[in-house]
Simulated assay, not measured.
Amino acid sequence: MPMIAADLSVRREPCARRTPYPVDTVGCLDASYNDICAVFGDAVLPPAGSGDESVAAGVEWVIETAAGQAILFDRDNPFDPQLQSAQPADWHVWGGHSAVLPWIHHVVTGSPQTFASCLAPSITAEELLISYADYLHHRASTLPPGDLLATQLILQRNDMIDVVLHHEQNTGIHCEPPDISPVAGTTLPYTLMPLCEVLGTARRHRARERRDLGRITADQVDTARLLADKAPGAASTTVMVEYGQQPNQAELDAHKATLKAMATALAHGSPTD
């Protein structure tokens, strides 16, 4: 199967589904058949007479990411999307968690920023926030400790952890990261503590700092406001500048754009709670 490594390289392997395979729609992707083939290789069409008449039995890609397995297929023309191979199509993404989306959007479009506007209507604000934090965390895990980009990705992840904790305090709902894919997990070097442990540590520190939380407001508009406030300056990366290190500007621009897109999605009531 195509596998998106944590360094965003794509390994083209024979396509296979894990059992049980994901059947929940977690989002979509606006891209042409040719664009997707250029990244993942040729799509797979199950052999005639397989007996599987589901939509996903059409032309599809089964993709492995650090956040789990995803199935990508053309909703409108699942059995022959190459009829208009150069035209953008409405590709649906099935997965166990929306955290698969930033990976797919980045390798196909060149940035994770579009994933926030392409979530399924049923995805919660908690899944949106943790999906991007998980993506940043695992990307940093492939790089040597002290590497400049690793430092930047961790600082950007910390931006997101701050927003996650703020949202949890407002709503009383924890943002739980997805389980690491058993396939992708064998390729991760685990130079970083698992994200669930990072979150647990951060929650304990925040609880000690703020014992006077007051009442729970359950206001995701407030979370959107915090995301929008962080986007222009991406404050955490200013630490790098203070120490004479220059952030990767392309990565910083993509991070800012992604925060803005997430803020817009939350402020307009999508994803839903």
Rank of each mutant, 00 (worst) to 15 (best):
I63C: 02
Q84I: 13
G200F: 03
I130K: 01
V163F: 02
A57E: 09
A224Y: 01
A235H: 07
C196Q: 15
S50E: 08
T264A: 14
L188S: 06
V198E: 01
P81G: 01
A120S: 02
A184C: 03
E64M: 07
V107R: 00
S50M: 09
D74L: 02
L227E: 00
E251T: 13
L119C: 02
P145Q: 07
V198Q: 02
G146P: 03
L72W: 03
Q249I: 14
E209L: 13
A99I: 04
D90T: 10
V198T: 02
P78E: 06
M160N: 03
L136M: 06
S9E: 09
R157E: 02
P189V: 11
P47Y: 08
V164L: 05
F73P: 04
A89E: 11
I154G: 10
A202F: 04
L149F: 09
E176R: 14
F115C: 00
C118V: 06
Y132S: 01
Q152K: 06
G214H: 05
T114P: 10
E168H: 04
M262E: 06
V198A: 01
H105G: 00
P2F: 05
H167L: 03
D229Q: 12
G96I: 10
V164C: 04
Y21F: 15
M1R: 11
A16R: 12
A235W: 06
M3T: 07
A267V: 06
R204K: 15
D76V: 12
G49K: 07
I123R: 04
D222S: 09
A224K: 00
L195D: 01
L227P: 00
P194E: 07
T201V: 09
F40V: 04
A234Y: 02
A6V: 12
Y132P: 00
L165G: 01
S85K: 09
L83M: 08
M3R: 05
A250S: 15
L101H: 01
G41Q: 00
G95V: 07
L45E: 14
V108H: 00
A261N: 11
D30H: 08
L259Q: 04
T151E: 12
T258C: 10
Q84D: 14
I123S: 03
A67I: 03
D42A: 07
C15P: 15
V93Y: 02
D7E: 10
E13V: 10
R17I: 12
Q152T: 05
G146C: 06
S122H: 11
G49N: 05
S98T: 04
